[in-house]
Amino acid sequence: MLGKLVRLGLLGVVIGAGLFWWITTPNVWEPEALANVDGDPDKGALVFAAAGCASCHAVKGTEGANKLSLAGGQAFETEFGTFYAPNISQSGEHGIGDWSFADLANAVSFGTSPEGSHYYPAFPYTTYENMEVSDIADLYAYLKTLPAVETPSLPHEVGFPFNIRRSLGGWKFLFAGKGWGLEGDLSAEETRGRYLVEAMGHCAECHTPRNAIGGLDRSRWMAGGPNPDGEGRIPNITPHEDGIGGWAVVDIETYLNSGFTPEFDVAGGQMAEVVENLKLLPPEDHAAIAAYLKRLVPLPRAE
């Protein structure tokens, strides 16, 4: 009887280990899904702006054309450790200059490195995974036009158990996967706004509160919450009186293009960077974002 129990226990361990290995295996695109997709660098420049790539990967404090030297190094302090934006310049040694289109697509859509390991979700791939392959191809084509910077990426400062990369597959199993925060019958303009906000703009990464292990609390979609770095709070951007309920569509459009609120305050901190990116988009995209925000469920500010 004891021997049978031991064998059953060992079988359970083997099955459990196999299940863990399956769940935590990094995902990648099937080659046929990426075949015959050609990128346009001019369109890619708009994807680059909408996705806010320079806001994280440019050297902190750089201005103008220097913001396109994507050497990384910016620090993001969280309760799980400090993460540093990597070099994503065209350096073959220190950046992504030798990456294929598939390498970039796997990183953006699944948080999977060219070596087949998991990236930390400080890189917002759980949002970018909703991006169309054609937009990733355009982004790839644009990145190829940018300079190489020979600056090594800084290592993340993450302690046990968060430094076990394989375990990130379990986190992805719980919180990754394509899907929208705003569902329902949307107009073409609202659908475009949803794509800009939820896929490229990754606004929920800051404006939606998180649970104890860092997953987005989708029941509080865009209701704001604590700043991950511990300084201040992220605003509620739902159409509730605690958020932007008093803002007209034109107020939102003006803010996205200039940074000025209806009260003549001005965007600061990280939002100032976001406005710098969004003002590069055409006016119809500003209108689409405003239409999307007005369709959100009004929620009181998350505490």
Rank of each mutant, 00 (worst) to 15 (best):
25 T>M: 13
26 P>V: 02
27 N>Q: 14
27 N>V: 08
29 W>L: 11
29 W>C: 09
30 E>R: 12
30 E>W: 09
31 P>T: 07
31 P>V: 01
32 E>H: 13
32 E>N: 12
33 A>W: 12
38 D>H: 13
39 G>N: 06
41 P>H: 03
42 D>F: 10
42 D>Q: 14
44 G>F: 05
46 L>A: 11
46 L>E: 07
48 F>A: 04
48 F>Q: 00
49 A>Q: 05
51 A>W: 01
52 G>N: 04
52 G>A: 01
52 G>P: 02
52 G>R: 06
53 C>K: 02
56 C>V: 04
58 A>F: 03
60 K>L: 14
62 T>H: 13
65 A>W: 11
66 N>V: 11
68 L>Q: 11
68 L>H: 13
71 A>P: 03
72 G>A: 06
73 G>P: 09
73 G>S: 06
75 A>H: 00
77 E>S: 15
78 T>Q: 12
78 T>Y: 13
79 E>N: 13
80 F>D: 01
82 T>A: 02
83 F>M: 03
84 Y>D: 08
85 A>M: 09
85 A>F: 03
86 P>R: 06
86 P>S: 09
87 N>A: 10
89 S>Q: 03
90 Q>C: 07
90 Q>H: 07
90 Q>S: 14
92 G>N: 13
94 H>D: 15
95 G>R: 10
95 G>S: 11
95 G>M: 09
97 G>R: 09
97 G>S: 08
97 G>T: 03
99 W>T: 02
101 F>T: 06
101 F>Y: 15
102 A>D: 12
103 D>I: 05
105 A>C: 05
106 N>Q: 02
109 S>W: 04
110 F>I: 01
111 G>I: 05
111 G>R: 01
112 T>I: 06
112 T>P: 14
113 S>A: 14
116 G>Q: 07
116 G>T: 03
116 G>Y: 07
117 S>K: 14
119 Y>L: 15
121 P>N: 14
123 F>G: 09
123 F>Y: 13
124 P>D: 01
125 Y>T: 07
125 Y>H: 14
126 T>Q: 10
127 T>K: 12
128 Y>I: 00
131 M>V: 01
132 E>H: 13
134 S>P: 00
134 S>A: 15
135 D>P: 00
136 I>P: 09
136 I>K: 02
137 A>M: 06
137 A>Q: 06
139 L>G: 09
140 Y>E: 01
140 Y>P: 01
141 A>L: 00
141 A>G: 02
144 K>A: 15
146 L>P: 05
148 A>E: 05
148 A>S: 03
151 T>L: 14
151 T>N: 12
151 T>V: 15
152 P>S: 07
153 S>F: 10
154 L>S: 14
155 P>N: 13
157 E>I: 07
157 E>K: 14
